[in-house]
Design a protein around this nucleic acid. Sequence first.
DNA 1: TTGAAAGCGCTAACAA
DNA 2: TTGTTAGCGCTTTCAA
Lengths: 327, 327
Amino acid sequence: MTNENLTIDDIARELGVSKTTVSRSISGKGRISETTRRRVLDFIEKNNYKPNLMARGLAQSRTYNIGWVVPGDSEMTALSFFQQCMLGVIDVATQADYDLLITTIFDHNIGGLLRVLDNQKVDGVILGQTLTQDPAIRALKKSGIPFVTVGSTDEKNVVQVDHDHRNACRELASILKLKGIRSSVLIAGAENKVVTQARRRGFEEGMDGVSTTVYMNCERTEEIEQAVEDALRSKTDCIVCEDDRICYIVLGKLRRDGVPIPSGVRVASFYHSSLIEDSQPAITSLLYDPKALGATACRTLLAMIAGETTEPRQLLGYEVMLKASTL
Amino acid sequence: MTNENLTIDDIARELGVSKTTVSRSISGKGRISETTRRRVLDFIEKNNYKPNLMARGLAQSRTYNIGWVVPGDSEMTALSFFQQCMLGVIDVATQADYDLLITTIFDHNIGGLLRVLDNQKVDGVILGQTLTQDPAIRALKKSGIPFVTVGSTDEKNVVQVDHDHRNACRELASILKLKGIRSSVLIAGAENKVVTQARRRGFEEGMDGVSTTVYMNCERTEEIEQAVEDALRSKTDCIVCEDDRICYIVLGKLRRDGVPIPSGVRVASFYHSSLIEDSQPAITSLLYDPKALGATACRTLLAMIAGETTEPRQLLGYEVMLKASTL
DNA sequence: TTGAAAGCGCTAACAA
DNA sequence: TTGTTAGCGCTTTCAA
């Protein structure tokens, strides 16, 4: 409160020491007597001194920013995931005095990311979503900057943090199988998203031996509803939805068509969210922790920035929630 | 592509000029012969030189970042608004070589914002939401940094950009009145949000002469559903929802209770979004343009940073969408 | 029209 | 344990 733009020089002069001493007192690097250290720190506290991060950054070639890259055209339901994830990232970043610089990607246009990299505005990047043949990953690799992806990728040497989608989906699918399902349908979204592929694989592995049909690339409402109609016509026992949004649309369609759940058809979702949590009956689904995902990603990135070696791939757990929709 | 970390000195040496000349060629400040200017610019282009923004920032006391502050605990539906708004901000910011530093506020905890301000990591701030007695606005004013709010506020000397909620709501309400409504109910959310107040006022002004009841602070699903029950019991003609989420919950409740729209009760929403756009029948609502809001806010902020004077308050338009739900 | 030199506020060898 | 002295890469007076 006392002073506006106090610098390290002011403090040094005021205290009759060199600026190096002040710098060291703050950073804790180098040997310093506890008494002078205290003296400096007290002064700083009392006068509310805040180091200028630009100057520090210039001297250390650091920005104290990390890039947070998300799709700019997400569905409302995906937004919630990114938001949760980001909160985890922020939590961890803040602890280390880092801030988040946000960048969006539209379709495959990574111009925003490139700008940030070119301008050296971040020390590392967290990629919020992975695609097959992901141009963002390519650019990041090429730039040489530390980065971690939230979501899996086949690209070599990419540090990644993800939910264990494949095992989760396999587990849920095999439970459904055990319940005596004879045929099932998976309605899934864009197949260029890595997560879609993982879920599909888990589904097929878990449903092994059961007659299955898969509808890929169901993005628009009409496509999803069409898939539901097909599924009902084929007398399937169970409709499995690749994510919460698809499930939400499926539920609406079934309701309007007067198809009861689970007696008419059973329904399960590979992703749980508030969008489907109030459904009657409650929907069997998989529960994850996006915030933990973000936190883990950020911790990992900070370690990389600090030059430490890290786990190349971390998979976080999940929870199977069995509800009345698949009785 | 050619070089990794080219500096202004390298260029100067290479071209046999001083770094001042190079700096001037880039910035366009100061007099320079067109020939040398071209020579420098060509070299830069050819060698893919990118100025170090930290260094430039230190010299100019600028960060080339703007702070983007949003609530960290938004409902899924509000997220969509902030996302749209942010896209508008990014569009404009990018043009001016600015990036977005994101900060979240939980409840009334503005710690994150304070950190960013203390650390001087931004040249200006856009506040994504305003509250009555807003602690963020207080902190921003005190800091002296340029800022603009998305949403209105009563605080003096705050540059603000907003949709014209009050007039929009008044217009919609008065149209409903003209349709012969005898009594109506407004179900609204948190009253500490400025926007809630504006909508309420618009509603009451437009409904002047009509018997009205207002339910404030309906946030949880049960509260909203309770309000619906009360409204139905009181035989109201029309339920007006303060936002899309409330409307979404109201629609669900009416459906389950078997109340037809509009014959059983009419329904309108003061905010349109994808959440209610597929409803049957279509819902009468107000349509805004959050992206334009963000873009305007950012343009205004950039002008302020540049030292220009700006409109203290800008209100953007809206569109009344009359649909079957209020026939 | 151009250049020399000081400085933005901090860190980090290297000395003392 | 502390201080001296160069930088980090750029902008900006002030001279030439």
